[in-house]
Amino acid sequence: MKRGPELIDAALEGLIAPSFTRIGFSARQRLFDWRRVDSYDLSGRVIAITGATSGLGRAAAERLAADGATVIVIGRNADKSELVAREIRELTGNPAVSVVVADMGDLDAVRRAADQILRAHDRLDVLIHNAGALSARRAESADGIEMTVASQVVGPFLMTSLLIERLAESGPGRVLTMSSGGMYSAELTVDHLQMNRDAYNGTKQYALAKRAQVTLSELWAQRVAAGSVVFHALHPGWADTPGVESSLPTFHRIVGPLLRDVDAGADTMVWLAADDSDPLASTGGFWLDRRVRSIHRLPNTRRSDTPARRAELWGWVGERAGVTVPVPR
């Protein structure tokens, strides 16, 4: 039988708006008496995070550095990444904040970034895939992949495969993927994962990519022993980030007063990276506000999520990434 806090949490989760806004975050924080994310000592741990120059990634990188972690800021713009790293060092007093430049949609850049991380660090405790943008116009990467899929599905898959052994050696390593509540509207598809130019819709393309991300996180978890590396995906709820403001201006204007601030949006990401209890006790979860949630809310997305389609997705992404994935045990 569920206790009072679990009943309230379940009621919030059943109603999207209260769950995803700052209301859900504030209620759960009180209900479950969360440990503060500024109470962790992460000295000696190495954490790499993509998309760390603004929004949720910047908030998480700053918090993790303040907790003593060695933080690798991965960004596509060298000047901006260096500026952010310098600001984080100054704000936290932690000198161990470095930069690796990579556009996650450029597979050659991802390979160079992974090599740079491996050469500079003899351990890697956490890899956080946070980079992501919603584009109104269709574009393709240098590898001929639709850019949203390249940067949020294929690029992260490649980086994970290149760093998986180092994560396992530091074990248990963690791979975290920041998804979006928008994935709830998207079916799992391979044939239509990349929208063509005539039918392109940036919001739908983003949701399709986010659905693929969550599925791949589960598939990684099935293939890699939890004692080596754990995998978790999560979504931040509705957070007030520069990306939301620029990509979804109408949504931002209407929901603005109820949006979470970036620290609240990044809370579960930081907690999954820092805490040694629940985040290491399971693998393959999809989280919101420090609790595992269902990956489906609609019957059509559940019907689309078949074992055959999952296997097809794994093969398709691996082929595009050009890797045969080593699976540590």
Rank of each mutant, 00 (worst) to 15 (best):
M1G: 10
K2D: 03
E6H: 07
I8H: 01
A11D: 04
E13N: 14
I16Q: 06
I16C: 04
A17T: 09
R22V: 14
S26F: 04
S26W: 11
Q29M: 11
R36C: 06
R36I: 01
Y40L: 10
L42Y: 01
V46G: 05
I47L: 10
A48V: 10
A48K: 11
I49L: 15
A52R: 06
G57K: 09
R58A: 09
A59F: 01
A61T: 08
D67R: 12
D67K: 04
G68W: 00
T70S: 15
I74K: 12
N77V: 03
R86L: 07
E90G: 10
L91K: 15
L91A: 14
N94Q: 10
V97M: 07
V97I: 14
D103A: 13
A109C: 07
V110Q: 13
A114T: 05
L118W: 00
V126A: 10
L127P: 05
L127F: 07
I128H: 11
H129L: 07
D143Q: 15
G144S: 13
I145N: 10
E146L: 10
E146M: 02
T148L: 09
T148Y: 00
S151A: 15
V153K: 11
L158A: 09
L158M: 07
M159G: 00
S161C: 05
R166S: 05
L167C: 01
A168L: 02
E169W: 00
G173V: 04
R174W: 01
V175Y: 04
T177C: 13
T177F: 07
G182R: 02
Y184S: 06
E187W: 02
E187V: 12
V190Q: 10
H192E: 12
L193I: 12
D198C: 01
Y200P: 02
N201D: 14
K204Y: 02
K204V: 13
A207D: 11
K210L: 03
V214W: 00
L219D: 08
W220K: 12
R223G: 01
V224Q: 02
G227R: 09
H232E: 03
L234G: 02
L234Y: 00
G237P: 03
G237I: 03
P242T: 12
S246T: 09
S247A: 15
F251S: 09
F251C: 02
H252G: 10
G256N: 09
R260Y: 05
V262R: 12
V262L: 04
V270S: 08
L272I: 13
A273E: 04
D275H: 12
D276V: 13
P279Y: 00
T283P: 08
G284E: 00
F286H: 15
I295V: 14
H296I: 06
L298W: 02
N300S: 06
T301C: 04
T301W: 01
T301P: 01
R303I: 08
T306R: 13
R309K: 15
R310C: 08
A311G: 14
W314G: 06
W314E: 09
E319G: 07
R320K: 15
G322S: 08
P326T: 15
P326L: 12
P326I: 11
V327R: 08
P328D: 05
R329N: 13
